[in-house]
Each structure stands twice: as C-alpha cells, then as structure tokens.
Design a protein around this nucleic acid. Structure first.
Lengths: 333, 333
DNA sequence: CTGTTAGCGCATTCAC
DNA sequence: GTGAATGCGCTAACAG
C-alpha cells in the first residue's frame, strides 16, 4: 500500500506537508502543493480513511436505526437522510431494529465502538439503545417518536393535529360512529394520534366510546386483527381511522377478504401515506407525512449537532397534509 | 477514554493478554481471563473498533450500491442483505447511485479509502465504479445486472425465461398484438427481458413487430411516456408486457389518466412484483422476482468471497414466479 | 501460556 | 511555511 510517506519521498517534501496538502490546508506553498499533487497522481495514492479516523477519533459514518427499511415510511425517510449525508461527506449505515429493544441496543453499541459520527434513531418502545447513546453523548437525532427523559434533537410530525384533521374530515362527511385503530400505548406517536382522534370527536360533540378503539402493533397483521375485532362488534362502526400505514393495509385486506368495500360499508382514513395510494381502488384517503423531509431535516439537525455539540437540543415539528381520496367519501343517506 | 492498557493495569496482566481475551482466543488461562473480564466490567471498557480496523487493515463494513432505495425492488433486496450482514457481524452502508456512473464511481472510491470489507453493486450503465473495484480486487458481488469484462460473483434472475413466461401467459389468454416496454439498450436486464418477449412470440408463431417495442429508462415517467406513444399507434396493442415495476406504475397511471382499464382496454403483465399489487384494482399480474432472496444470496456470496478471495467467481440465477392476477384476464370475444 | 515490542497510516504538536 | 517526532488504540510477532 502506498502511504503518505511514499508521496513525501517522491515529491521531496515531508509527510506533514503532504498531509496538509491533502486535507486542504491553506498555508502551503503553491509550488510544493503542486509537486505533491503530481506525486499523488503518479503513485495512484489513496488516503487511508481508517488511519485518519483513528487519528481524529471519529469516522464519517452516520447510523440510522429504524424498525424496518421495508416500511415505505422509513424507506423515504432514509433516502432523505442519505441525500443530506452525501452532500455533507458522510455515509449512512442502515440498521433495522425490527422494534426490538435488544437489536436497538446492539446497534447503539456498534455506533459507540465503531466511533460513528452520529445517529438518527426511531426509538423502540423501551429505547434502550437511545439511553445508552444519550449517556455517551453521541450526537443523536430522534425521529418520529419522543423519548421521556432524553434530551436530544427531535424531528416529529404534528401527530395530534393531523389525526384530528383526518377524523374531522370523516365527521364532516356525516359519519358519527367512528372507530380507531392505533399503536402500542408505550409509543408516543400512537398516543398522540389517539389524542387527535379524541379531540376531533370532542370538538364535534360526539361522545368517546372506548369500545371503538383498538391498540395494535403498528403492523399489517395487527391491523387485520383489529379490523376483524371491530367488525364483530354488535354494532360495527361506520367509519374508521387507522393510525399508520401498515395497519391500514391490514385493515384493507380484512375488508377485501370479507367482501366489504370502502367507503360504502365503512369509510376509511389512514395515517401516513402509501405509495400507489392513488392506484388502489377505491383510492385511499390519508394523512400524509412528509417522510422525505423528515429524513432530510434529521440530517440537517445532526450535522448542526456535530458542529456544535454544546447547543441546547431543538425539536422540529413538520406538518402533515390530508390527502382526500375515495375511501372517505361522504356518507350516503 | 479507557484503553486496553487501563484494563491490563487493572487486572494485572499485559495488554496482549487483554486483547486475546477480548478477541476470544482460547489459549488464555481461565483465571486470568476472568480477571480481565472483571476489569472490563468495572472500567466500563469498550474496545475501539477504529484502532482494530487500522491494525487489521479492514473494517466490518459492506457497501451496497443501488440506484434508489425507494424502488421496492431494491428496498427488499437491501433488507435481505442486511439480515445476512447482521448475522455475519457486518454493517451495511447504503449508497444510492441514481443510475449515475459518477456517483457509482464516487462510492467505489469511498469503499476503497474507507477500507470496506466488501461491496454489493447493481451496476450503472457504464459501470465505472465496478471496474475500479474489480481492479482493486475488492470483494464484490454484482447483482441484477451483468457487466461485460468483469469477473465477479453475480446474482441474477432468470430474466429471459420469466419474461417469456409472462408473455406466453398473455398469448395463452388469446392476445396476439402484444407490445413491450423495456429498459435501456445498455442494460443487460432490459435486453434479456426483451429477448424473453421475442422468444415467447416466436414460439407462438406471432411475427415480431418492432413498432410495438419501446425502450424507456426504467422509471415511472419513462413508462408513462412509452404507454402514451403506444396508445397513439394507428392500431394500438391489445396487450402489454412491461419490463420493470416503476415503468408499470407509469403505464398504469397513463391508462388511468385516459380512462382506460386493464384488461378490458389493454391486458397487462409487469416484470417485478409491487407491494400491494393485490390491493390495486384490478390487481396486477406480475413476473415476481425473489428480491429478498437476491439480497440474501448476495450477502452469502460476499461472505464466502471474503473468506476465500482466490476462489473462481460464481453466478447464481434465481427463478422468477408468475403471479397471475386480474390485469391479464383472457381476452373477451 | 504470557509479556514485550513494534508498527498499522495519519494528523498534529512543536521547533525551526 | 515546513519538517521531525509523537502517539491515536490495537493486534501480531516474537521471545520467554
């Protein structure tokens, strides 16, 4: 392997000067600088990033810890993050936690031993890894979910407001008996969206009926089961608000299986957009999250945090947007 | 930062012994080993991965260079790769090349300077980065596409056969005037799938009509435009085979926009599955690729290549599977 | 089986 | 503005 010493010898300068030239320091004689560049080209020299990392006690890696890259919510978010990383000179290490606190912790551990420059995390319910990273003062941005007791930069969406807007849209369509499938009680987004559901009902003077609420696991199977359970009610709901994309798919599958259709049999609004939501027939009304922007914003915050580790943490809340499509068409009399 | 020397001092042994214990070498007195472990725990010592990397002249990083993580084909593939990486002790660095040879080359360069242990690449048309990596003898697995002149482990699907099967299915449904939208001429998958289309026609004794073939860019917009152009033909096709998922979506959008429906106005088979293909109405007939398996297989090959760099490269070809759904229903008389 | 020693390749003091 | 020297933390020789 050719090293900085080889380049130094070849160009008749010291290794220190080569290092200065390569890291773009200004205080180098242009003439020497030129010699060094020439030697680099002749030798086909390539700096050793690992050695640099050791010396600087930090790498150019960011980790992104999410539950599953196959969930389009995270896919797009990761893309947004990676775009920022690329322009800032970082690389993104993809970590699928599958909502498993142990995996999250294992990745957190890797972040520390590999000296990664920063992390973006969507915390699991117990947030074990997040606590570990917070303690180690690793530059970190929380995404999608809050974690009690951890002070860190955070990017959220306006969950309560978005959910309320979606539910209000159903109420405006003439529906009153509106059910809700939301996520686990320990997850802040699940509770925030449930709160939005409740507040929309309250605003409309519709009494809250806890028999119409289901807590599932934010996954397809959970949405399917919750839908089944709602349909078995003595008096099934006439409309439904589902608080994430995978559970919405599950609910749709359950309806399809039973030969039921939205909005005729049950009107539907889902939280979080789905690619091809327009191509599904009937097309799906959603409370869309700016997923790409979430990732991008997280990247920007992380960059700033690395530049100024001492600064007090900030929280950015992005707005959701109601995409009215066919499944929430007004009630027919 | 606590180092291996601190642990050594604390436990009354040499740094070398600490290193041996931590890297799981067997030839260490159990008693000393125990002491070391105790000291590690007491001090909260954490090995420095970067230093280890420098010493060993290699990291535990794999890069995966794909055109776009937002394409569900790659999303699932990356997931498969990451699952293998995790069990083998590697981390995956995500690289979106956007089909841009310059970006591919930049990532290849990063792979080299950061001393990553291996790469999985879906090559861009000119495969600049791939050539660079091949020259440097970096452990590499090519995925989805072949590259002329590069000897490397490769994972492909049975493109020609899968395409032929999809087209034959249309022919069996009574269609004769069948169009094809495929990808760029320089991309092996595009040509292989086109070859499958032709061979199915030939087998059925249907003459090949090049006016019914379009080369687009494998993206949504390209599929849309190609569809438009086919519909403007004096005698539009009665069926269509589209050679990737994004272009299929584009074609569907074009049909929707014009108020046309599959299969009544035009029957449709797409190459590569789409999540929710079942939920789209009419549901979409596809030649499904085992995307997760592609990623998993690539990971396995990469692992083997790293273990035995000298071994001659192998090519694995996975089978596609025809998923018959509604858009290819037999022709009505 | 264990300890001593050296050096991976670089960036950064500190002199000059 | 430049060069010599040092050490980041670890593992692999080698000697004992």
């Amino acid at each position: 392997m050719t090293t900085i010493y080889d380049v130094a010898r070849r160009s008749g300068v010291s290794p220190a000067t080569v290092s200065r030239v390569l890291s773009g320091r200004r205080n180098v004689d242009p003439e020497l600088s030129e010699k060094v560049r020439a030697a680099v080209a002749e030798l086909g020299y390539r700096p050793n990033g690992v050695a640099r990392n050791l010396r600087k006690a930090s790498t150019n890696l960011w980790a992104v810890v999410i539950s599953d890259i196959e969930n389009p919510f995270f896919t797009s978010l990761v893309r947004g993050l990676e775009d920022v990383a690329q322009t800032e000179g970082y690389h993104v290490v993809l970590c699928n936690s599958d909502e498993d606190p142990a995996k999250e912790a294992a990745y957190a551990s890797a972040v520390l031993t590999e000296q990664m420059a920063g992390v973006v995390v969507s915390p699991t319910s117990t947030a074990e890894g997040v606590l570990q990273l917070a303690e180690a003062k690793t530059p970190m941005v929380l995404i999608d979910r809050r974690v009690d007791g951890v002070e860190a930069d955070t990017v959220l969406v306006d969950n309560e407001h978005g959910a309320a807007e979606g539910v209000k849209h159903l109420i405006d369509g003439g529906y009153e008996r509106i059910a809700c499938i939301t996520g686990p009680r320990r997850v802040s987004t699940a509770m925030d969206r449930l709160a939005g559901y409740r507040s929309a009902l309250r605003a409309a003077g519709i009494p809250y009926d806890k028999d119409l609420v289901r807590h599932a696991d934010f996954r397809e199977a959970g949405g399917f089961a919750a839908m089944e359970s709602l349909l078995e009610l003595p008096e099934p709901p006439e409309a439904l608000f589902v608080s994430n994309n995978l559970m919405t798919v599950g609910a749709l599958e359950c309806l399809a299986k039973r030969g039921l259709r939205a909005p005729d049999d049950i009107a539907l609004v889902g939280f979080d957009d789905i690619p091809w939501a327009d191509l599904v027939v009937p097309s799906l009304t959603t409370v869309a999250q700016p997923t790409y922007e979430l990732g991008r914003t997280a990247g920007l915050l992380l960059k700033d945090r690395i530049a100024a580790p001492g600064r007090p943490p900030s929280t950015v809340t992005l707005r959701t947007e109601l995409h009215v499509r066919a499944t929430s068409a007004p009630k027919q009399k």
